[in-house]
């Protein structure tokens, strides 16, 4: 382990410990915010793991998340809660692999459209099945409190960072950097580009499903329109891009300010959140194409006096 890696490890352990102490503040408002921020950190970081190197924009987060939520909602009657998380992960990963198989061989536009429709597709199917069986929603009754959900999400975040770090050091990570630079070259040096992308896409698929499974006890009553809200996918894209996908820690830099801004806007102007979402997209494209990470790196380069 190099000195730099050791420093990063110590810093992230300290940050995690500090974050884990949040419930000790005793403020239920900040605990709620903590859950929201931890959830988006998990979702946006895993999203960026895939979309950063491949440049494919996935809007499937809500679909995976919803599948995870329903895993808990249906499974809680039959199995202990802890076994549901790996089941959700497996379901999310398999679903991501299927989506990847159908679309990742094709151009990015097809992928966006496909993932855009996916959450709505699953939602309509579940609604239809529920109509057939005469059910409206499902109750998830556990003794898990907000605090427990928060700690679980922090643990998941730590896992996501670990996975990102391991991938970056693996053959897969090297393959993805090559794909990001030039896919034609990647194929001609012997990389199965479609397979690499499918395997990588399984990561956000599994992570979002687990996040959904973890949050289900918070909602208590689960119905399709709640579990599969399309807004979630868009928020994740914005936060990840706002932070910057070039670095593993980039997403969280976008998550914290955007979550605070979102909460502030929806508290005072509840009808303007859509407008905010639109403006955020335009800001990213026209003003911050590399996100906050890009801004920071440019600033550091200017201060450091050139060089790369």
């Amino acid at each position: 382990m190099t000195g730099q890696e050791l420093r990063a490890l110590i810093l992230s352990t300290l940050a995690l410990a500090a974050a884990a102490a949040l419930p000790a503040l005793g403020s239920s408002y900040w605990l709620t915010m903590g859950v929201t921020i931890a959830m988006y950190t998990v979702l946006a970081t895993s999203w960026a793991l895939f979309s950063g190197p491949t440049h494919y924009i996935s809007l499937a987060t809500a679909a995976f998340f919803g599948v995870g939520t329903y895993t808990t909602a249906i499974g809680i009657e039959l199995l202990p809660y802890w076994t549901l998380l790996p089941i959700a992960a497996a379901l999310g990963a398999v679903m991501a692999a299927l989506v990847g198989f159908a679309t990742l061989r094709l151009s990015g536009v097809y992928f966006v459209i496909f993932t855009l429709g996916l959450a709505e597709f699953v939602r309509q199917i579940i609604t239809w099945v529920q109509n057939l069986t005469g059910q409206k929603g499902l109750y998830v009754l556990t003794d898990l409190t907000e605090k427990h959900i928060y700690w679980q999400l922090l643990g998941l975040a730590a896992l996501v960072y670990l996975a990102g770090w391991l991938i970056a050091r693996s053959r897969l990570g090297f393959a993805l950097r090559i794909i990001g630079d030039d896919e034609e070259v990647a194929r001609h040096v012997g990389i199965d580009t479609a397979l690499a992308k499918i395997v990588l896409f399984m990561v956000p698929g599994a992570v979002a499903a687990v996040a959904g499974a973890m949050l289900a006890p918070r909602y208590i009553y689960i119905e399709p329109s709640l579990a599969f809200t399309p807004m979630l996918s868009f928020q994740v894209v914005i936060m990840a891009l706002l932070g910057g996908t070039g670095r593993l820690w980039g997403a969280v830099v976008g998550v914290i300010p955007f979550t605070l801004l979102w909460e502030a806007i929806s508290a005072s102007f509840p009808n303007q959140t859509t407008l905010l979402l639109g403006v955020a997209f335009l800001v990213i494209v026209y003003l911050l194409p590399r996100g906050f990470v890009g801004l920071l790196e440019d600033a550091r380069r200017r201060l450091g006096g050139g060089g790369w």
């Binding site: 090297f174 950097r177 090559i178 990001g180 030039d182 070259v185 001609h188 040096v189």
Partner: peptide, 29 residues
């Protein structure tokens, strides 16, 4: 293995990393 008519190198990488791409994923891995 091939080279391209219009040179295709991997712009974000160093010379060594470019060459390593062939060594890692090619015929002999």
């Amino acid at each position: 293995a091939r080279t391209f008519q219009l040179v295709r190198v991997l712009p974000s990488m160093t010379v060594l990393e470019n060459i390593r791409a062939g060594a890692v994923f090619g015929h002999r891995r």
